[in-house]
Design a protein around this nucleic acid. Structure first.
Lengths: 344, 344
DNA sequence: ACAGCGTATCGAATCGATTCGATCTCTGGA
DNA sequence: TCCAGAGATCGAATCGATTCGATACGCTGT
């Protein structure tokens, strides 16, 4: 209608080659006339080989991911870092009940960021590798050749545990994150541990057990204050076998444990010490400042985004190791005199 | 390599037509040999005219959206409702500073859900309509023909205000959500209001001012407890012009106002009454049960998802109006005797 | 008047799959 | 022996844009 070839029309919309103002206007007019709203992104992405979309595969369901402040911050920074390269993030649920092909198999994406690592996330990784998509794994077990962003979960957990040990605690309870996609709460048994698939949980647990090998542990269904309350009750309600300190694998769980303790008439840290993990700003903690390790949540996202951008530019991605920083708060203290280990 | 036509090969992967087991195996073997990982989603989506992706355009930046529990719940239900029809949700930031075309213009999506409505979201809507994409707007000003999910923001706000009025308060302060994409905090002036673009904020404000036409108002940069603290200080710190009640446009803001009040040595509800909006479960509220209106956040998401699914199936989408439910809590009470209006 | 050069436009191949109607083959029944 | 019908496979058109090398055109300098 504008009397030009499709190549010229294409160029008018992409602006990659100069076009005379006259032609340009004719093409635009014709487009308006024909109700043509610019190139079809589907066709463009086929031809270009790029869709401008980066997928984020979350280890758990989206609900829990959204509710977790650590993930929230991470996603935010990830978005920033990918702004140049991607129109937006495609959130994929990594549904463990999924029967057919995981959604990642059919999604037109340029790259993938895998977060956490249930068994299913591993299968998502297979697909990604088969497709030859650039991928970055945040805190998960990647195959060889896949850049990772890792955290010193084990070492950081051990640091907290050592701090509590040094204060004199010999009898502690542990509260862990979910062990796998099923997210069943309850006491951790060796058999249960055998079936666990979530590396973050296992690493943090391993760090804690470096210091307290036989400590009783309870797993929570999610990183939520409410879950922490449940776990706290489970550990603290029986006075006979009540630990003098509780180590939680997230700050939200720790806050829940503190609530449970207060509910039972126990004071923190006088009667029970509680430590967390993450170093997020928790609302509603009252006067307490949680003893915890601060993890660089935003950095995780930013670095993952940077690696993806690099890989899309053809450069190789790099694995980056991040470390946590211990922060002593007011929720840990030496145990009560009668609970102290006998001095030698 | 398998000695079959591309049509047959295609069918082996899509499974839409029956293929003999023999051929099937040969195709699969050849695929493995050639490192072919199944059809390219980009090409498939061109041919099919469907990409299996639904975009979610958020009025504000992603950071605030993620941090807002109402949005979180809504997104979660939206994901559920779209599970059948979409592999995942493409999160698009609706960047007000964007210079080029908004990302929605180039994203290969099948439908769009617009949430909230800054001026930019409206421009996103233009693009969506030009493209002829099915769209649903949640709490925003849609053009004709676009199904909306609406909330009775104005009426619900008026309900809260009337409750406070009936308790005897004549001098109240208002705390609003952000007025526009710029998210500047500060006192609301008529000129400021003139430039405001966020409908939700304006509707709720209008409802409050039905009852308290001249009430001083302060706008917050986001729906966060910290922002509520700032706004609360602004309204409450000067004893001379201190209101006896504060109406906040979100529960998080209300919690912040309560904090600010306590900080100033004021008791809630004895010295100051505070009411919120949303009806979410707020952690860290202590003994208070917030007076608020409960909005059906999950329903908003679910209904939006359902409408999108219907439209993709060829049926017309429908506009749905949702209403909030007033919930009286323990943060509102009659004003102190000396602050009461003189009895006639 | 012509070589030389820069700019605007065009042709045609290509990206990779999907799908429908047509063809082919094999089986069973008359 | 022949035909109908079911099931498997194939051909070929099509989805809609991008892009690179080639061509045409107009201008400048000598």
């Amino acid at each position: 209608m504008a009397g030009v070839s499709t190549s010229t029309a294409s160029v008018v919309f992409s602006g990659k080659v100069s076009v005379s103002e006259d032609t340009r206007q004719r093409v635009l007019d014709a487009a308006a006339e024909l109700d043509y709203a610019g190139p079809d992104p589907r066709a463009a992405s086929l031809r270009r080989g790029r869709s401008g979309i980066v997928a984020v595969v979350l280890g758990g369901d989206l609900r829990h991911a959204f509710l977790d402040p650590v993930t929230t911050v991470m996603m935010d920074r990830l978005t920033d870092a990918l702004a140049e390269v991607s129109a937006g993030l495609l959130l994929l649920r990594d549904d463990p009940t999924g029967d057919g092909a995981p959604p990642i198999a059919d999604a037109p994406v340029d790259a993938v960021v895998l977060i956490g690592c249930s068994g299913r996330a591993r299968s998502a990784l297979e697909i990604v590798r088969a497709r030859g998509l650039p991928a970055v794994v945040i805190e998960g077990d990647a195959g060889e050749g896949v850049p990772q962003i890792t955290l010193d979960n084990r070492e950081a957990s051990a640091t907290v545990a050592r701090h509590v040990f040094r204060l004199g605690h010999r009898h502690v309870g542990l509260v862990t994150l979910a062990l796998d996609g099923a997210r069943e709460r309850g006491p951790i048994t060796p058999e249960r541990l055998e079936r666990a698939t979530t590396d973050v949980t296992l690493d943090r647990l391993a760090g804690m057990r470096e210091v307290y090998p036989g400590a009783p542990a309870v797993t929570a269904a999610a990183s939520l204050i409410d879950e922490g309350v449940l776990a706290g009750r489970a550990l603290l309600s029986d006075p006979a076998r009540r630990p003098t300190a509780v180590l939680a694998q997230s700050d939200l769980l720790a806050v829940g444990v503190i609530r449970a303790a207060e509910e039972l008439g126990l004071r923190v840290p006088e009667d029970v010490s509680v430590a967390g993990f993450d170093g997020i700003a928790v609302d509603g903690l009252g006067d307490h400042q949680l003893t915890t390790v601060v993890q660089p949540a935003g950095e995780k996202g930013r670095l993952a985004g940077e690696q993806v951008a690099r890989m899309l530019a053809g450069e190789p991605g790099e694995t980056v190791h991040l470390t946590c920083r211990f922060r002593e708060g007011s929720t840990t203290a030496p145990p009560r005199a009668e609970d102290r280990p006998a001095p030698r």
